[in-house]
Amino acid sequence: MQSKLTDIELINQSLAGNQAAYADLVKRHQRFVFTLALRFSKSREDAEEITQDCFVKAYRHLSQFQGGSKFSTWLYSIVYTTAMTFLRKKRLDTTSIDNEDTYIQLENTSSGLENNLAENKSRSYYVNQAIAQLLPDDTAIITLFYKGEQSLEEIAQTLNMETNTVKVKLFRARQRLKDKLEHNLKHEARELI
């Protein structure tokens, strides 16, 4: 059962030393933070490590949260920085993460991909699969926009970019996602025939 208190109320209680309040805050945001971390790291173990690191960092610096923006925006900026540092440290791929021609496959989904029949898969499965093939920046923008309830201004704040840059990046990310989705669906249809 999750607390009905607002994020700010839970933060104030956490700052007063109530750790249960922070646990509620973690429960409230963990799914989204984990999804975002998974989009970057492409591995559940790494994503869990990043997510845990983010929440510990957020707790450590909770007193620095001014309340000028949403707590989620502040938290997501920590996720973005932590995930980027993690990726750089781990050097998951030898190619640059900024290379637009590089697409990374999701570790856990590839094994069962061929075995599943198209009729068993929902459209959201294909969307998730296509998102996993996008670049980290693209996936971050798409996820923040559609699932993080973040406006373009808030995404810009999280990713430390200009609002117009985010707008252009969102448009391009949606284009790539659409192309990937169409490609994957065509590939699936060909396999069935």
Binding site: Q19, Y22, A23, V26, K27, Q30, R31, F32, F34, T35, L38, R44, A47, E48, T51, Q52, F55, V56, Y59, R123, S124, V127, N128, I131, I142, Y146, K147, R174, L177, K178, L181
Partner: peptide, 27 residues
């Protein structure tokens, strides 16, 4: 249709003991 599809994508769930692990790390 695409907008609805993108909006309907599912969020992933961390392990069951995740919150406990975070609080343990903080402690």
């Amino acid at each position: 249709q695409l907008n609805a599809d993108f909006g309907a994508m599912e969020l992933d769930e961390p392990s069951m003991a995740f919150t406990y692990n975070v609080m343990e790390a903080i402690r």
